[in-house]
């Protein structure tokens, strides 16, 4: 490696240094804005599609959905691009517009980082009908089985949620509200269950009323942009 450096005749003044860094920062900023704007629509569309697929997955038979918000008394329909908060959830409907169930998202601490869970809830049967992990950073090979292990995910396909879900050692599942935990990832399994129990404690009673009807308009208005 050669060490022939083009030696500077004299040290550059501080004005030169400030100017260099400002120009570099300015150009960098322009590039960042460009890439942000260029990818924004695709990223938003990816997220919307991912959520839509997740809702369809946790609620078998669902082909249409709408965003709902609990306003203190009842559930009101929101436009699909409305902001999410702890009072929003999704209603799932079949092709004829008949109500099937709610998809509820909740997040909580896992073994390493926040786990974000979406589950399907059938208020008539008061049962969970499916679950999907939206986001997690659990240990590869162990904790990531909460979404990679089909047998674990299938635990939640027909699960009584009351009084609460309990994770038990694999193979000892006896009652309808128990699930088989993953061997070697008990903390991750229990975290998933705790997140669901918390969500159910919050939503359980609020969802006992008549579900809101599917508003066709919402679906049509958003067909062109966010939901593809």
């Amino acid at each position: 490696m050669s060490t022939q450096l083009p030696m500077m005749e004299k040290e550059p003044g501080s004005a030169t240094l400030v100017a260099t860094l400002s120009i570099a920062g300015f150009i960098s900023g322009l590039i960042l804005i460009t890439i942000y704007l260029a990818t924004f629509d695709t990223i938003a569309a990816n997220k919307a599609r991912e959520l839509r697929e997740a809702v369809f997955r946790v609620l078998p038979g669902v082909t249409q959905m709408q965003k709902l918000r609990f306003d203190g008394k009842t559930l009101v329909v929101l436009p699909a691009d409305a902001r999410d908060d702890e009072n929003t959830l999704y209603g799932g409907y079949d092709a004829e517009g008949r109500f099937i169930g709610y998809a509820i998202a909740n997040a909580g601490p896992g073994f390493q980082d926040t786990i974000s869970v979406l589950y399907g809830y059938d208020p008539a049967a008061r049962k969970m009908v499916g679950m999907w992990i939206l986001d997690s950073r659990e240990t590869p090979g162990l904790g990531d089985k909460i979404y990679k292990d089909a047998a674990f995910v299938a635990n939640f396909d027909d699960l009584v949620m009351e009084p609460q879900i309990i994770a038990v050692k694999r193979g000892t599942k006896a009652r309808e509200n128990e699930i088989d935990a993953i061997t070697g990832a008990t903390i991750s399994s229990k975290a998933v269950v705790r997140i669901m129990n918390e969500a159910h404690a919050f939503w359980g009673e609020k969802l006992s009323g008549t579900p809101p009807a599917l508003e066709k308009q919402i679906e049509r208005v958003n067909h062109g942009n966010t939901l593809k």
């Binding site: 500077m8 040290e11 550059p12 030169t16 240094l17 260099t20 860094l21 570099a24 920062g25 960098s28 590039i31 960042l32 890439i35 942000y36 260029a38 990818t39 990223i43």
Partner: peptide
């Protein structure tokens, strides 16, 4: 300029990283 070269390198690298990240 030599005194600020590392900062400039980091700005350049960070810009490319963010572009790769968003892409």
């Amino acid at each position: 300029p030599r005194p600020v070269r590392i900062s400039v390198y980091v700005i350049i690298i960070a810009t490319f990283v963010t572009v790769a990240d968003y892409t």
